[in-house]
Amino acid sequence: MSGGKPINPRGTKYEKVEFPVFEFPVVGKARYSYTTGEALGRFLAGLKEGKILGTYCAGCGRVFVPPRIYCSYCFKEVDGWLEAKDEGVVVTAVMSYISATRARLERPVAVGVIKLDVPGRQFDDHFFPGIMHYICGATEDDVKSMRIFGARVKAKWKRPEQRTGSITDIECFEVVRP
């Protein structure tokens, strides 16, 4: 089309072999030591005992898992703690063929978001207690066919003496076969 003003973007495409690079590790051997905070500290202590804990806001009715000490919507302290069940339904799931460093995995792993059950409470799709975790017992086809959506899953816990107070105290959420 006429009337186009040609832009002339500059810059030099760089091929690995042509120029020197200066390589540094990120910050030597530096490591972060993250604190858990109040809410997640109690959450992790709960995991060690085989419980999934959350908080709730009486103002708006929201349940927070992972827990917060405040309701960010009503902007006030939460009204207390509750225990979610260690089971729920898969709201989304995927099959990962790569690691955190983008290396190919020998065997793909399923991961997803699990909407957790809380006795006596119902949640819609817009806001719900939910966590990300591995899903075990799901085949590649279960994920690719989307059969996994809505599937019931239950936490597969490490043995009590192996738990350290970490999200990995749950090995995965296992598909409950009817």
Binding site: S96, V113, M132
Partner: peptide, 19 residues
């Protein structure tokens, strides 16, 4: 605290959203 120990790749979250 609750996600990094699972060793995620960022593409996970987009795959979850896309799916």
């Amino acid at each position: 605290v609750v996600e990094k120990p699972l060793n995620p790749n960022l593409i996970w979250i987009f795959a979850m959203e896309m799916h």
